[in-house]
Design a binder for these strands. Structure first.
Length: 591
RNA sequence: CUGCCCGUAGCUCAAUCGGAUAGAGCACCAGCCUUCUAAGCUGGGGGUUACAGGUUCGAUUCCUGUCGGGCAGGCCA
């Protein structure tokens, strides 16, 4: 209905333009006016066409404006500035917004699409080798909001977490846990410097003992080190020393696998299940849920990695060199070719990622959205190149980069403790500032901008804190509605039938305009992949309401006016609630 | 060294495929509660949109260069 208004007006303007300039068909685009006094919608067609039509823009605008058909929607049309055509809506159109918001309720702002796109949103996808940190938190908040926004905008969304359960990192974690576990049985082995050293590894070791007793401890500690190259001195930081430490670690992993034999797989799976379970709980408490947990290992188990490579091979995009197998990604704009199978026969991470993307396409999505940390930006050309090489349309793949978040406490950086090099965990952040503040702060900035996360501000219980500012507006209205029900026997269910034509105060009309914009805001947030657009809109809406509340009493004596104002307030509450839900932030009834 | 991203008020950030007088919040100053939640509101000062060119009716937005910041340049993931 409301979305219709804009398209109806666009149609009116298109017809006017056609009668003035039938030979200059350009698409008419209406924009919401940025400034009060410039009407509700504005068009710059006259400015765009003036030159090629050789008519002064202002004059052209006048001629187009004069041809706009009479409509009950429009109060007036005026030409302003350099040649803008401003459309002013009839107040009755604004009044209808109230009915619209209240009848649609939780669905107000939602898009209806005849043919919804099937969209896959893959996000977080952190290695399950330790707790999520605040960097993952931003990806989680952004991805979850984006997925909700796309869904609300009318698409069919699948939320997916890609589990890197096949790689060396998981082996390192399994080994680390095993060594800590052996420690519990008095079987001490020097812990490798590049193993996982976090407290959670000790915890898992104890859990492993509780669950499986000494099943993995029936080994000779000497055999663990057999054939393992010695470590270089700790103070050596050169490349050769690093390489020695890596091969030391790899040798330990090999021995672990050899000594445990079949039991290694269950150790690996135990560690994986623990970490994934922890991650899932963490995210669930953050209000972030997934439809699919996609296993990297399954790509190997089902032969999909080999199949993808074979497909590239057939298409002539692979070649052998130096004993390795390479993908000719330079043919697709990458700066160098990339190895897909190492000299030792092992496929690279990139190889499984190619298979993963092929699989995404084969599942039939219209759009595929990858949300990555910005440090992966160099990875984009090779993935898009691989997709193209597989004969797929790379334009259906969108990669949204999320920049790092830096925490500040007392004006000082706090995101990384400099001594241990460990990141602050997402869980610690949630414990400190709460879920709502964390979710909102993460999406308050454009995702591809660095984020300064002010912990002190997030914890402030005042209007300085945007979380409270938004929630307070919602709670305030909820309180008014309760008061209205108890003092005036108000029936919320009746509000959608209230006659709102008495709403004529400029502040009321501003609120109605703001409410009317919400569907377009959702649409913009969806098409731009920009949850922050919702956040900024909500701040504007809340501010408009707080202003109105301070200036005008809602529960006045005159029944008709009181009911109209209550209905208006109820619309603001509903719209705030809908927007907050898209951001994963609670909308409290009372504060 | 090369590539990508970013430079907007003192600070943190917006700005609808290039639009009208570049907007908010914080901080600073001055005000508003006997009335539906003051976790709120009103007013004020604050800008050469890093810099220099270019494209055009019009540039924070597009192009080139300079300066400054971030990230990336593995047979790691």
């Amino acid at each position: 209905m409301i979305a219709d208004i804009q398209s109806q007006l666009t149609e009116l303007l298109s017809r006017a333009l056609f009668s003035v300039a039938p030979d200059f068909g350009i698409e008419v685009r209406l924009a919401r006016s940025r400034q009060e006094g410039h009407g509700d919608f504005t068009s710059n067609v006259a400015l765009q066409l003036a030159k090629q039509m050789k008519i002064p823009p202002r004059q052209l605008a006048e001629r187009v404006a004069a041809e706009i058909p009479v409509s009950s929607l429009l109060a007036r049309v005026e030409v302003a500035g350099a040649g803008f055509i401003n459309l002013h809506l009839e107040a009755s159109v604004l009044h209808e917004v109230v009915h619209e918001v209240l009848t649609r309720g939780e669905r107000y702002g939602a898009g209806v699409r005849e043919t919804p796109n099937r969209v896959l949103v893959e996000f977080v996808s952190a290695n399950p080798t330790g707790p999520l940190h605040v960097g993952h938190g931003r990806g989680a908040a952004y991805g979850a909001s984006l997925a909700d926004i796309l869904e609300f905008a009318g698409h069919a969304v699948t939320r997916e977490y890609y589990v890197n359960d096949a790689g060396r990192q998981m082996d390192i974690l399994a080994l680390s846990t095993w060594l800590r576990y052996l420690d519990l049985f008095g079987l001490s082995v020097h812990f490798p410097p590049n193993g996982y050293r976090g407290d959670y590894v000790f915890t898992m070791a104890r859990q492993l003992r509780e669950a499986h007793g000494d099943r993995y401890a029936r080994v000779d500690p000497v055999s663990i080190l057999s054939g393992v190259p010695p470590l270089p001195p700790a103070e050596r930081g050169d490349g050769e020393a690093q390489a020695l430490r890596e091969s030391h670690l790899d040798a330990l992993i090999d021995n672990c696998k050899y000594l445990l034999a079949d039991a290694y797989r269950s150790l690996h799976d135990f560690v994986l299940a623990e970490q994934l379970g922890d991650c899932r709980n963490d995210l669930a408490e953050f209000g972030v849920h997934f439809d699919v947990w996609f296993s990297e290992r399954s790509l190997y188990d089902l032969g999909l990695v080999e199949r993808a490579l074979a497909q590239l091979e057939r298409a002539g995009h692979l070649y052998s060199q130096d004993g390795a197998l390479w993908f000719r990604s330079t043919a697709f704009g990458d700066e160098k070719d990339r190895v897909v199978r190492r000299e030792n026969g092992q496929p690279t991470y990139f190889a499984s990622d190619i298979a993963y993307h092929l699989n995404k396409y084969e599942r039939g999505f219209d759009r595929i959205v990858n949300i990555w940390g910005a440090d992966h930006h160099g990875y984009i050309p090779r993935v898009k190149g691989a997709v193209t090489a597989l004969g797929l349309d790379a334009h259906r793949l969108d990669i949204a980069l999320v920049q790092f978040a830096v925490l500040y406490r007392n004006g000082q950086k706090a995101s990384m403790s400099t001594r241990s090099g460990e990141f602050v965990t997402l869980r610690a952040l949630r414990d400190e500032v709460g879920r709502d503040a964390a979710r909102l702060f993460y999406v308050l900035r454009k995702s591809d901008q660095h984020l300064d996360f002010d912990l002190d501000l997030a914890k402030t219980e005042s209007s300085d804190n945007p979380v409270y500012y938004l929630q307070y507006a919602h709670a305030r209205i909820a309180s008014i509605l309760r008061e209205w029900q108890s003092q005036y026997d108000g029936e919320p269910g009746e509000l959608e039938r209230v006659d709102c034509s008495c709403l004529s105060d400029p502040a009321e009309l501003r609120l109605l305009r703001e409410l009317m914009a919400f569907p377009a805001v959702v649409d913009e947030a969806a098409s731009q992949y920009a949850p922050h657009v919702i956040a900024f809109y909500l701040k504007d809406l809340a501010a408009e309401f707080h202003r109105y509340y301070t200036a005008s009493r809602i529960l006045v004596d005159v029944t008709a006016l009181r009911e109209a104002r209550v209905a208006l307030a109820a619309c603001v509450r509903q719209t705030l609630a809908n927007g907050l839900r898209l951001l994963g932030v609670g909308a409290p009834e009372a504060m």
